[in-house]
Write a protein that binds this DNA or RNA. Sequence first.
DNA 1: CTGTGTGAAATACTTCACAGCA
DNA 2: TGCTGTGAAGTATTTCACACAG
Lengths: 220, 220
Amino acid sequence: MESPPDNSNSKQIGPVPKAVIARLSLYLRELQHWEREGKETISSTQLGKLLGFTDAQVRKDFAYFGQFGYPGIGYRCAELTQAIKVILGTDRSWPVALVGCGNLGQALLGYGGFSEQGFRIVAAFDSSPSRIGQSIAGVKIESIDSFLSLSKQLDIRMVLLAVPAAVAQEVADTLVGAGVTGILNFAPVTLSLPRTVQVVGVDLAIELEQLAYAVVKTRT
Amino acid sequence: MESPPDNSNSKQIGPVPKAVIARLSLYLRELQHWEREGKETISSTQLGKLLGFTDAQVRKDFAYFGQFGYPGIGYRCAELTQAIKVILGTDRSWPVALVGCGNLGQALLGYGGFSEQGFRIVAAFDSSPSRIGQSIAGVKIESIDSFLSLSKQLDIRMVLLAVPAAVAQEVADTLVGAGVTGILNFAPVTLSLPRTVQVVGVDLAIELEQLAYAVVKTRT
DNA sequence: CTGTGTGAAATACTTCACAGCA
DNA sequence: TGCTGTGAAGTATTTCACACAG
């Protein structure tokens, strides 16, 4: 319809705070729900209220990447959604591998939420002979020894690492040797890897601790 | 041996930044590994290096809660571990319930990492008749309808919420009605609940998005 | 009017740097 | 000497408040 605001300017202007990126994912999630309700536009105030942020915060966050809003209107959901996906790199589909097919790994294989955001688990690996060969959620579990060749073939750069803590570092080293540059680490250890490799840690016990603190604090 | 530094002063001095609390959990985790190696003390520099923080950051973080270190020595692991647990509220064992026993819920039931940090999953609930009555990892799955009575009986104040996104808000409302004050929410939705209820969200797709951003950014 | 984008002000957080203790 | 605790300085992030656009 009207001319789009300034999509030539979807370039990041300065260094972007990490917290901004974290919120971008939250905005995207809320935006997707909002669109599903059939709404076409959303204001910074509305979006902020959904997440408990101020309207200024919402606008500032987007301003790091360009101009996406329409004064008097707000943001067009479809446009903004797309812009955030481009920023996060999820406007395309990523092939990811699961490494470690125990309890948690198997649950990750069955979790549908990844594909909705553009991530496809295209291969699964384990070291236990009793698991190798099994298929779960349509993915056959391969030997970790075949990671190098299969990951090249499938162009895998990101891995969900769900192995026991005791072997996590060792397995991670192998993955990095095979060209992996991003690891979502579910093991409760700090991985020590080259700076070129990105690691995001998800430690469920730590999340529970944070919750315990919050609960105790408010009671006191 | 010597007089402890100042355990009367384990009182928080000002408002504590949320980031500090997040790091406290990381310190605790590293400290536990460090102790397992048989080490008795650790300096702020050593602890910082394990996590990529500066020594000053480590000391400042602890300073919010009192004085725990010994000049010339560092921190005694056992003492510091205990102090952090007291701060986080995990010096005692918490009974928690699992609500939602699908893929992810079952994996959480089988996950040993919680008990190591003082959390016991003492009950599991689901709404599906096909799951109710089953036992997983020694915990029998109960009907969600019995949550109110069982949670009172077991003194449950924290819940792992692993139900489908579509029903998460509704179920959360029920839990809060039963007196739950802390929810670790695995559903990819923002729960809208009274301020007295603490919510920590774990959205696996969002963590992957954050990783994708980091990977794309470094490649560019 | 409603609502964005954005400098300026206000906060919050991190790092520095050093006094003082063992 | 080795290392903590902590004001002061320096950065980073958030909020304010307002010019301007539809």
